[in-house]
Design a protein around this nucleic acid. Structure first.
Length: 213
DNA sequence: ATGGTATATTGAG
DNA sequence: CTCAATATACCAT
């Protein structure tokens, strides 16, 4: 319902009022807003070969359903609401792996992501072009509460005019929240889109703003 | 050809 | 002058 991006300026007051509306009707996001633990940091590691096994599990949490894909060492993907559907990124990039439902492997990452009281660095395994990897690495170096535009991210990563391509990269981010694509907005303080829904983007942004204040 | 963009330009108020 | 809508340019897959 609040999902259309109007070109409203992204000042803090706007975010706060919006967040208020959102949390009134969405308890999962409300809990996310109140999540006080440290933001985990992603260690971006490129993987070339398909893991033999990919473990996955869907957790019922106070933040809603969260599905995690991982191998023995690294987290590969997260999704929030689409847990009924296939994860397109995983399917496309790891077609030869065997999928094993395993709570044990996945809950290690769930804990580190959302419930840990100390700062965590989480190893990730990313499949994709050099461009994709560089963009995600650069993005991972941004700080909680920080916002930057698609263009700024492109420039930071060393691709002067690749804003458009950065958009696609963000769309393909396999690890929302952990790799903070919610910090990437349009130029001129416009919110821009978010695959997980604009509502979630607003909540993530406000949560980090509150924390770093 | 397709994308979660950027920017210059135009036209309304 | 200030938006907001658009048209055109831009870049990696």
């Amino acid at each position: 319902m609040l999902n259309q991006t109007k070109n409203e300026n992204l000042n803090i007051k706007f975010i706060q009022t919006k967040a208020l509306q959102i949390t009134e009707e969405n308890n999962d996001l409300k809990n996310f807003l109140e999540l006080k633990t440290f933001n985990p940091k992603a260690l971006i590691q490129k993987i070339e070969e398909n893991p033999l096994h990919i473990y996955y599990y869907t957790f019922e949490t106070k933040f809603g359903k969260i599905r995690i894909f991982c191998n023995d060492m690294q987290i590969l993907a997260i999704d929030f609401d689409n847990t009924e559907k296939d994860n397109i990124y995983i399917l496309k990039n790891f077609p030869d792996s065997t999928f094993v439902k395993s709570k044990k492997h996945c809950e290690y990452f769930l804990e580190k992501l959302f419930f840990s009281k100390k700062e965590n660095i989480i190893k990730t395994g990313i499949k994709g072009s050099l461009f994709f990897i560089k963009i995600l690495k650069t993005l991972s170096k941004t700080n909680p509460g920080q916002l930057l535009s698609y263009k700024e991210l492109a420039e930071k990563a060393g691709f002067k005019n690749a804003q458009r391509a950065v958009g696609t990269a963000m769309k393909n981010n396999p690890l929302p929240f952990l790799i903070p694509c919610h910090r990437v907005i349009k130029s001129g303080q416009k919110l821009g889109y978010y695959s997980g829904g604009t509502n979630r983007k607003i909540i993530f942004i406000l949560r980090e703003h509150n924390q770093s204040a």
